[in-house]
Design a protein around this nucleic acid. Structure first.
Lengths: 117, 117
DNA sequence: CGCATATTCAACCGATCGGTTGACGATAGC
DNA sequence: GCTATCGTCAACCGATCGGTTGAATATGCG
């Protein structure tokens, strides 16, 4: 198949549209994790999480490196740059509001295990 | 039904994940438009475009106001703020690169009528 | 009124999505 | 070598998605 080296906005936004995947990204923001550890807080099968991670990797949002029998997942925020540039063109937003993001993350991670966000 | 006053990130990102809808947003960036006019450059049915606009409106990305028999569509960039804040938390990106956005828009609008992006 | 224009609704279609389960391939450790 | 662990693959499922078509609903205009 033809490799998609530069993930399209389609793929990136579609990857971000799922709450499970956004929660995973938020988890990886704190530390790199093995697939099994990523899956632990969720009440769904390992295979499902593996698929989610595959989608995130295809979108370029994470990278996965296999060391031994453990596959480590690492956040790769560069992929968000293109999408972020696209979005910001619409609003001429004020400078980044990191406080708002912190608050958001707290809510998102605080609800781990439940399908709220 | 229960109104979704604050569109979720789910809805916003899902709305942005479709190239047709992103193109529509880019078109509305230049001017407000009637549904029929939005549909004109696309090679798909009016009903399909009407659905797309409905999805964009549900995500809060546009507002629609009916004057006479014409429904005017207007960009509402505020809805992007939440999503933008979320995304920027991951990358600590450099300040907005509007030049990059201009270039992007040119490509996107230059391909109008074809299903490229 | 009668007709054209603007837009949506409803039913349908194939494709994709998010999830499950069970079998499978690799690697680590005793 | 045997066994437990890590992770993916493949087949399947119901739900949603993006599109079509044809009929219906407004509204404007002569």
């Amino acid at each position: 198949m033809i490799a998609a080296h530069a993930p399209s906005l389609d793929t990136v936004f579609a990857a971000l549209a799922d709450p499970t995947r956004r929660t995973i990204l938020a988890m990886l923001l704190e530390d790199d994790m093995a697939v099994t550890d990523v899956a632990e807080p969720f009440s769904m099968s390992l295979a499902a999480i593996s698929k989610h991670l595959g989608i995130l990797a295809a979108a370029g949002l994470i990278t996965q490196e296999k060391r031994g029998r453990v596959k480590w997942c690492k956040l790769d925020p560069d992929a968000l740059k293109g999408a972020s540039v696209w979005m910001q063109g619409f609003g001429q937003f004020e400078p980044v509001n990191l406080d708002a993001f912190e608050a958001f993350l707290e809510r998102e991670l605080g609800a781990e295990g439940d399908a709220i966000l």
